[in-house]
Each structure stands twice: as structure tokens, then as C-alpha cells.
Nucleic acid binder design. Structure first.
Ligand SMILES: [Mn+2]
Ligand SMILES: [Mn+2]
Ligand SMILES: [Zn+2]
Ligand SMILES: [Zn+2]
Lengths: 137, 137
DNA sequence: TCATTTACGCAACAAAGTTGCATAAATATT
DNA sequence: AATATTTATGCAACTTTGTTGCGTAAATGA
């Protein structure tokens, strides 16, 4: 979907910074951390603004956070196939390559339901797989 | 297991700092982040030393990292029941409470095997569950 | 075009994490 | 037990990551 459409759909003002961030995501098809975006948009979008854009995007459901075992969280576009799969729930898995450190959404793999020990009420599931990606194989 | 035994078993020198860190873990039974340990051991162990202790412990298999969706990773003792379950693999799940932000190992729940899309060679699995813990229920 | 609302950029700060190096402490050797 | 060797610690200095306040600019609505 086009950046401008995404913004309208999520009730967000159409600003240059936001559009550029969305373009960056759409051209990579992998999860991006703040510092990667900052680098890509150096001189175009301020560092602090970038933090605020990411926060807003997450709050509005444009992006989702992916927990990371290294320096900082990453973000990926929510529901790539939003037109088709309208009731997209974000309980899909993520894969992180130990070689190149890139993280991908595995959209077509839903985390199975599991019986969890007593006393815990589970509302979210994050499955992060580690290994070697196609490129690095 | 006693701190000193753990250190010997993992081929680590028996130092005051390391012992205190292990004591801290054994008295809490939850995952701890660097800043929590730093606070608990203020004046006892230097901040930088603490980073190095955690790194060493992870490398030697005393602790394991738990990815987090917030500010920094957490650590938990590996294989609580190492004496019994000797071939402990760290593919157990973790639970993080959205109320108190505490993270626990769910040692008795092993992540099931799953068929992953082509091209990815999976060697590690991190399942982070979110929700409400017993105390906060 | 003008008013209003919201986002942006900048400065200043706080928190998290790293590196180098001299000294202290732990282990190994005699 | 004393000494040599190895390894860990503490401190300073620095980088990176994330936050807050505020005046200005840009986006939207009238
Ligand atoms: Mn995803
Ligand atoms: Mn664990
Ligand atoms: Zn790779
Ligand atoms: Zn709780």
C-alpha cells in the first residue's frame, strides 16, 4: 500500500517525515531499528522526530515492535496484506539471522496455541527464531 | 546450587562480584536487567564490571539472555534444575507481565517444534509471552 | 486566506553500553 | 608460604540510545 494511504487509514497527518519512513520500510521488506532509519534518512528527518514517528506508528498500529536480544528493538510494517487478511493478528513469528543480524516477519506462520502453566493470563505472543537466513546460507 | 559451585562448574574464578550477582539471582527467581542488579549491588560492584560479569556468565552458560521489547535485555539463570535435567536446552518460554514488567522463565514449558517456511535454518527459539502474572491478576 | 491543531527541529539531558589502562585479587608455581 | 602469573576490577572517558521542553513550521479545517 502507498504511504499516503497508510497514513490516512490510520488517522495520521500526511507529513514528509512519515512518508519517508514508510518508503524506507516498503523498500526493504525487513525489520528496521531506529538507528538504521536514522542513517538512511540522515539530513532528512531529525533523530528525535524519528523516535516520535516510530512511537506514533506503533500506537496507531502502522508498525509493530519486535523484541531483540541486542542493542535495540526493531520495527516492521503491520499486516503487509491488510487488504486481504483484514483481521490480522500480530501473533506471527519473526526470524533473525545470526550472520547478518537482519530480522524478518514470517507472516505466513502463526504461533500455535499452547497450554501455558497456571496463573498466567497470556494476551501477547512473540516468537523470535534465530538461525541463518537465505542470503547467508 | 550454591554460587561457588556454579562458578567452579563453569570454569570461572571465584570473585566477590560474581558471587554477589549469583546470590542476587538466586534470591529473586525472576529475570534481572543490568540496571536492577546495579541498583541492588550499588557500592558493591562497579557498573562496568557488572556488564563484564553478565557477558562472561552468558558466554559460559551461567545465564541466558531474554530479548525484551523495552529498554534492555534481561538475564536469568540457566537450567535451574541442571542436576536433574542434564540435557537442558534453553528453548523454554518466558513470560513478561505487562503490569509489573517482571519476566519469568517458564521452565516446564518447552517450545514445540514447528514447520518453518523454506530457506530459514532455525537454531534458536525465543518465545516471549505477555500478559498478567499471578501477583498482578 | 486565516485560525487551529499537530508535528518538527534543536538543545539539553538521562540512561545504556563500550574501551583502555593501571591496580587489585585470584590462581598457579616454586 | 612466598612469589610469579593470570585474570578481574574500578575508574575515567567516550559512544550510543532514548527522553523532555519549547519555540517554530507545517498540515488541516474553516
Ligand atoms: Mn512482524
Ligand atoms: Mn529462561
Ligand atoms: Zn543473514
Ligand atoms: Zn505482574
Amino acid at each position: 500500500m502507498k504511504p499516503e494511504q497508510i497514513l490516512i487509514q490510520h488517522d495520521l497527518r500526511k507529513t514528509q517525515g512519515r512518508i519517508m519512513v514508510l518508503q524506507e520500510f516498503s523498500k526493504h521488506d525487513k525489520a528496521l531499528a531506529h538507528n538504521e532509519l536514522q542513517h538512511a534518512l540522515a539530513g532528512k528527518v531529525d533523530r528525535v522526530t524519528l523516535y516520535r514517528i516510530l512511537d506514533q506508528f506503533e500506537k496507531k498500529g502502522v508498525l509493530h515492535k519486535i523484541p531483540d536480544d541486542e542493542v535495540s528493538v526493531k520495527y516492521a510494517l503491520c499486516a503487509h496484506n491488510h487488504e486481504i487478511d483484514h483481521q490480522h493478528s500480530d501473533d506471527h513469528a519473526h526470524f533473525k539471522c545470526n550472520d547478518c543480524s537482519e530480522t524478518f516477519c514470517i507472516d505466513d506462520f502463526t504461533i500455535p496455541n499452547m497450554k501455558i502453566p497456571e496463573g498466567f493470563k497470556v494476551t501477547e505472543k512473540f516468537l523470535l527464531l534465530g538461525g541463518v537466513c537465505k542470503k547467508c546460507a
